[in-house]
Design a binder for these strands. Structure first.
Lengths: 241, 241
DNA sequence: CCAAAAGTGTTAACAGTACACCCATGG
DNA sequence: CCATGGGTGTACTGTTAACACTTTTGG
């Protein structure tokens, strides 16, 4: 441990240097599944640059001015932006850091590095989203139909990265349970897998996989049945750990 | 597309605002496997904070001053730091972004966000590393023996994240080939898997897996044999795509 | 009764696991 | 000739994939 005096002096000297710094933002790829189709939340930008263009929700990370005001954590910034831009209450979505995009020319305003997160929203909460103050509106867009090139900044690339991540994790992690209502049927969960992977899944085989999850205690049966068109289906719920 | 004038004006206005910004660094978890043991490259810090402590190599991302000097890409910064801190030529290691650490209090100097990368270095290049100017020395440390709590900043946490990532990818991606010399034997490759997973692998079963990779064209036999103690072994090379 | 979705069963192919065994070489 | 690592074969197991089949409902 070095002497506190020299340490403090070194820190003060470093603060005085002040090399140019980049601005840092967080951007969010907010996903849900409705009508067996994967959707991403896009805003329409109120202000330049890319005014009136579609973009991912996001904003600047708050950094305090003084030495003893460091500001907010990155996670906190992501949660705050999700709340501000969608109106959804905190903790109502699964949030995970995705990747950091720092190409030198990615923002016309100068050097802006963005830490991208993705969020998974349950379909029963999806209709509740409302536009924040820096957006003219918000919209759930079918991921398959989004024109990547028409998005602001490098947001098309960020969307692609999120898709790759989610597709890679769907079979090995419980993220699918963040894309169904609190209680769900076998077919509803299967629809989530199919929407994300973009391929059909054999109903019988999926059911067996589902059964294993029940045996492993990952899922348990819930009371009641779902009346969905034809024959009513049993409902289940995810067992959090 | 908005009018160029209003766009430019908006950008100028934004530049003038100048909210406080974080400093941004890149940190590197440089890994290799020597003597069937996974090693990480640690430096000893020449300057405060954490003077004389062990730390991951890294440094600040260069950001240009003027509007038309955006600076270097994040990837470029990571490659530059790897070269500066190890002396290894560019392109001699596999480099991949790991995670961005932005806890508000992680650096005593103020708000510093770090984009962590991990690098995989072939064992035949490992002895060539030399210390950079901001380090008193560099050392390959056995990952199992590193005292996480004794590392500078949150570097212990970053090391753990790198280990988790590499362990998760070793069975599903070709990263193991970045941890063996250009030509290698079956046993050498198996040693890499064992060092990373920390568990023994049945030689016969691994051999069969290896054979499948040869049949799939991922690996091809190379001329010559390796004289390693007892019976000489066939050597192979990875087929890049 | 019919269509459609819920739910069950059967089978072949394949990859992982455990383990027994032969081969070639340096000492 | 023998210890050691190189290299092969085999039997068992669990998972996946494809597909035929029965059951229960609404119309």
């Amino acid at each position: 441990m070095p002497a506190p005096d020299s340490e403090a002096a070194a820190i003060a000297a470093w603060r005085a240097e002040q090399y140019p710094r980049p601005a840092v933002t967080v951007d969010l790829v907010v996903l849900t599944v409705t009508d067996t189709d994967l959707k991403v939340l896009l805003i329409r930008r109120r202000d330049p640059p890319f005014q009136h263009c579609r973009a991912l929700p996001g904003g600047f990370v708050r950094v305090g001015a003084g030495p003893d005001e460091p500001g907010e954590d990155l996670e906190a910034a992501a949660h705050r932006e999700l709340n501000e831009e969608t109106g959804l209450p905190r903790g109502s979505a699964y949030l995970e850091q995705l990747y950091t995009f720092g190409r030198a020319g990615r923002d016309p305003r100068g050097r802006v590095i963005t830490v991208a997160y993705y969020a998974l929203v349950r379909p029963d909460l999806a209709p509740l989203v409302t536009a924040g103050t820096d957006a003219e509106g918000v919209e759930w867009c079918s991921v398959g139909e989004v024109d990547r090139a028409a998005l602001a900044f490098d947001h098309g690339q960020i969307l692609d990265a999120a898709m790759a991540r989610v597709r890679g994790k769907i079979d090995y992690t419980p993220i699918a349970f963040d894309l169904v209502p609190p209680t769900f049927t076998v077919t509803e969960l299967r629809a989530v897998y199919e929407a994300i992977k973009g391929s059909e899944d054999d109903p019988g085989n999926f059911r067996r996989r589902f059964k294993r999850m029940v045996e492993d205690g990952l899922i348990e049966q819930a009371p009641g049945k779902r009346l969905t068109g034809k024959r009513p289906a049993r409902v289940y719920r995810f067992v959090r750990r």
